[in-house]
Simulated scan of single mutants.
Amino acid sequence: MENELKVALVQANLIWEDPIQNRTNFSEKINGISDSVDLIVLPEMFTSGFTMNATSVAETMDGETISWLKKISKQKQTAIIGSLVISENKNYFNRLVCVEPSGKITSYDKRHTFTLAGEHKIYTAGTEKVIFNYKGWEICPLVCYDLRFPVWARNIENYDLLIYVANWPKVRVSAWDSLLKARAIENMTYCIGVNRVGLDGNNYEYTGHSASFNVLGNRMDSIQESKETIEIITLKKEHISKYREKLGFLKDRDAFNLEA
């Protein structure tokens, strides 16, 4: 039903720089998800954790992980979103991909590389905001650090759903909580954030705090912190149209001219 979208948020631990084991772990998790789900959301760099050692984990768009995503998506008849390290034209990208059951792939390269960790020295920043249609829903996918930059996410396209995939550490997780809610409110959109849990190879701790908010900024899930978990939420088009028409806040938004 195009008026509803069932989304599975997969909050998981990631095995450091081990794409094979991560694919195996996610296969088990995804196989346990209801077949009625329309979209599955995985964390940022779900095959490796947030690594600057791109050469050890990079793949191509014809590589093992993309093939695996296509296979799982077709089997489950659901779209899957997550980011991974992609090598292309002698550059590395932190690339979010959405793979649909038809085999269609939508990709978005992380615009704001995380300079605090030196991501800008390893990965090439994306230059294009991406909005794609899936089952009648206009979706804007973004990655982790993008969350701190509201102008990039500004809902000038009247999209229905904003998705962030992340490796956002415990030490700054209060910002993650606040900004996810703010992005939903200011853009009058559903906003979903999926973060990882556990320790990475640099000994940074992640406590998840994956969450979903409706257009009023109300929390829609009951995901617990620091635990691997999968929660399914149902989004409804009528909720968006009701409050956009009633409140009209997007009609008063500013126009921005973005330059890459």
Rank of each mutant, 00 (worst) to 15 (best):
E205K: 14
D146K: 03
L235W: 07
I80S: 03
T234Y: 05
S178Q: 14
V85E: 00
E186K: 01
T113H: 10
S48Q: 11
N53K: 13
F50E: 12
R253I: 08
I105V: 07
K6A: 06
K90P: 06
R111I: 15
N187H: 00
L39F: 15
W168D: 04
K76C: 03
A153Q: 12
F93I: 05
W152N: 13
I66D: 01
R253M: 08
G63F: 08
A184G: 09
I233S: 00
N195I: 05
N89M: 11
I233K: 01
E17P: 02
P43H: 11
K246R: 11
L247E: 12
T189H: 02
A255L: 15
G193R: 09
L96S: 09
E186V: 10
F93K: 14
S83P: 03
W137T: 03
S102P: 05
D160W: 05
K29V: 14
A58H: 11
T127V: 08
K74S: 13
V194D: 03
Y123N: 03
V215P: 15
Y134F: 10
C140K: 15
T127N: 10
Y92C: 10
E88S: 13
V197P: 12
K236V: 05
I30Q: 01
K76R: 11
F26E: 00
A182Q: 14
A182D: 13
P19D: 01
K121E: 13
N155F: 04
L96P: 04
R154W: 15
N257R: 06
I30G: 00
E138L: 15
G201D: 05
R111Y: 10
S241C: 03
G248T: 01
I230F: 01
T207A: 13
G193C: 05
S56M: 09
M1G: 13
W152I: 13
N203R: 12
I33W: 07
P19H: 06
V130D: 02
D62S: 12
E245Y: 13
K70V: 06
A125V: 10
Y92S: 04
W152S: 15
L250A: 01
M52F: 05
I20C: 05
A175S: 09
L39Q: 03
D18N: 15
S226L: 00
T229R: 09
S56T: 12
N91C: 06
E2W: 02
N53E: 11
N3Q: 14
L235P: 07
T60C: 04
I156D: 14
L9N: 00
R196M: 10
M45K: 08
A166H: 08
L179N: 14
V171W: 12
E59S: 05
R95E: 11
